[in-house]
């Protein structure tokens, strides 16, 4: 039990708790949390491990969503193939823009990504309006065919699929955190020159991290597309550019489970507070200010050491 928050037991426990969300809370809420958590973990990795803050995550989300949407609207009907195409679109865009973006310092990196989100918004809304249908978006819910074993058109099956996918994503990021590559990412964040002394290329490390993070974001976009059966340029609206950064800060930067906790808190507050007042963002903003002033660790970043301490105490007392 000692390493429950460090090793794979922690991963199983986290996902067991996440599964309980499905049991006790409405299915749409659970699905939204899962997708949002996947959306955020790339941003969390970039910010916490590589030191890159990105206000352009909606761009990569939109690339994944539109990759899936184009396939399901124009070419085929299998949602699994649609998701695969969305993920591959994410790989392609990250490979394409990564070499230019990762050369920049973190502040310029944040802005250039925001610029990309703005470009994508106008690209999907205006320039490609003939194929994206502009503001009206692409509707393809009825185009999707039922698939055997797991039917993604069914919200319950969609939850199971997304849950398993999220588990795989978290296992990957857990592996990355513990790997030499994860250490390299942390090292490039803290001191890039020192990494060169050892024979590492900072550029290659950052590019690979960028591709991994934004492919995950594109995967979330694909899931959004399949879940709603609809994609519009709103998905890459610059006004939503800060969402993944807010969720990252809310959950705890650089923590493995921060994105899940952050997505839960953010979606929960949004659903709860928006029922009473329209400007629910005000409460998120206030909470964020409080979290930053209270130590910048986020919800999970604050809870994790307390839980660890409790478990260690329990273990020592039983010994």
């Amino acid at each position: 039990m000692v390493n429950i928050f460090r090793w794979s037991w922690g991963l199983l426990l986290a996902f067991f708790c996440l599964f309980l969300v499905r049991v006790f809370l409405p299915l749409p809420f659970a699905n939204e949390i899962l997708i949002f958590a996947i959306y955020t973990i790339g941003c969390n990795f970039l910010l916490g491990r590589v030191g890159f803050i990105s206000f352009g995550q909606p761009a990569y989300l939109a690339v994944g969503a539109y990759g899936t949407a184009f396939y399901l609207f124009y070419f085929g009907s299998n949602p699994f193939v649609g998701i695969l195409i969305g993920v591959l679109s994410g790989v392609a865009i990250a490979l394409l823009v990564g070499p230019f973006f990762v050369r920049l310092r973190s502040d310029y990196f944040a802005l250039v990504n925001l610029a990309l989100a703005v470009i994508m918004f106008y690209l999907f809304e205006k320039i490609l309006a003939k194929i994206t249908h502009g503001d009206n978006g692409l509707w393809f819910l009825t185009n999707m065919t039922s698939t055997p074993i797991i039917d993604l058109g069914n919200p319950s099956d969609f939850f199971i699929f997304t849950f398993l996918l999220a588990f795989g994503v978290w296992a990957l990021y857990k592996y990355l955190d513990d790997s030499i590559f994860g250490a390299c990412c942390l090292a490039t964040k803290t001191n890039e020159d020192k990494l060169k002394f050892l024979g590492y290329s900072n550029f290659n490390i950052r590019w690979l991290a960028f591709v991994i993070a934004n492919t995950t974001t594109a995967m979330a976009g694909s899931l959004y597309a399949v879940y709603f059966g609809f994609v519009s340029p709103e998905i890459t609206a610059p006004s939503r550019a800060a969402d993944p950064v807010i969720v990252t800060l809310l959950g705890g930067v650089g923590t493995l489970y921060g994105p899940i906790v952050g997505a839960f808190a953010y979606t929960g507050m949004k659903d709860l507070i928006s029922g009473y007042i329209a400007n629910w963002e005000l409460f998120i903003g206030l909470l964020l200010v409080f979290i930053m002033l209270a130590g910048e660790k986020g919800i999970w970043g604050t809870l994790e050491p307390i839980l660890k301490k409790l478990i260690f105490k329990k273990k020592n007392s039983t010994n």
């Binding site: 030499i180 250490a183 390299c184 803290t190 001191n191 050892l198 590492y200």
Partner: peptide, 17 residues
């Protein structure tokens, strides 16, 4: 040194390279 990494991880970085 890489202050966020342990001594072991610092050496692992050298080893992997």
């Amino acid at each position: 040194v890489f202050s966020d990494l342990t001594v072991r991880e610092n050496l692992e970085l050298g080893s992997y390279a």
